Simulated assay, not measured.
Amino acid sequence: MEGLFVRSIEENIPLEMIYLAENKELSQRTLIVKEVTEEYIRAYCLLRKQIRTFKRENILSIMPETRPKNRFLH
Results as ranks from 00 to 15, higher is better:
Gly3Pro: 02
Lys34Gln: 01
Phe5Ser: 01
Leu46Lys: 12
Thr53Asn: 07
Met17Val: 13
Ile41Tyr: 05
Ala21Pro: 02
His74Thr: 11
Met1Ile: 11
Arg42Leu: 02
Ser8Met: 00
Ser27Lys: 10
Thr30Asn: 11
Met63Gln: 14
Ile18Asp: 07
Glu65Asn: 15
Asn58His: 09
Phe72Leu: 15
Lys55Ser: 11
Asn12Arg: 07
Glu57Asp: 15
Glu10Asp: 10
Ala21Asn: 14
Ile62Met: 08
Glu57Asn: 14
Asn70Arg: 15
Gly3Phe: 01
Leu31Gln: 02
Glu16Trp: 02
Asn23Arg: 10
Met63Ile: 12
Lys34Ala: 05
Asn12Gln: 01
Glu16Thr: 14
Gly3Glu: 08
Glu35Cys: 05
Arg48Tyr: 10
Ile51Arg: 05
Leu73Gln: 12
Thr66Asn: 12
Asn58Gln: 09
Glu16Ile: 09
Phe54Trp: 08
Leu60Ala: 07
Thr53Gly: 00
Ile41Lys: 02
Glu39Pro: 03
Lys49Tyr: 11
Glu25Met: 13
Glu38Pro: 00
Ile41Asp: 04
Arg71Thr: 13
Ile9Cys: 00
Thr37His: 02
Lys69Glu: 15
Pro64Trp: 05
Arg52Tyr: 09
Arg52Ser: 09
Thr53Ile: 11
Arg52Lys: 13
Ile62His: 00
Pro14Ile: 08
Arg52Trp: 05
Ile41Arg: 08
Lys24Gly: 09
Leu26Gln: 12
Thr30Pro: 06
Lys55Ile: 08
Leu60Gln: 04
Arg42Asp: 03
Pro68His: 10
Leu20Lys: 05
Ile13Met: 07
Met1Ala: 11
Thr66Leu: 13
Met1Gln: 07
Lys24Asn: 10
Cys45Gly: 06
Ser8Gln: 03
Arg29Phe: 06
Tyr40Trp: 12
Leu4Gly: 02
Ala43Leu: 09
Thr30Gln: 10
Asn70Gly: 13
Thr37Tyr: 02
Phe54Arg: 03
Lys49His: 14
Arg7Ile: 04
Val33Pro: 00
Lys55Phe: 09
His74Lys: 14
Leu4Tyr: 01
Arg42Ile: 02
Val36His: 03
Thr66Val: 11
Arg48Ser: 11
Ile59Ala: 05
Glu10Thr: 03
Ile62Gly: 03
Thr30Phe: 07
Gln50Asn: 15
Ile9Val: 04
Lys24Asp: 10
Gln50Phe: 11
Glu22Asn: 13
Val33Thr: 07
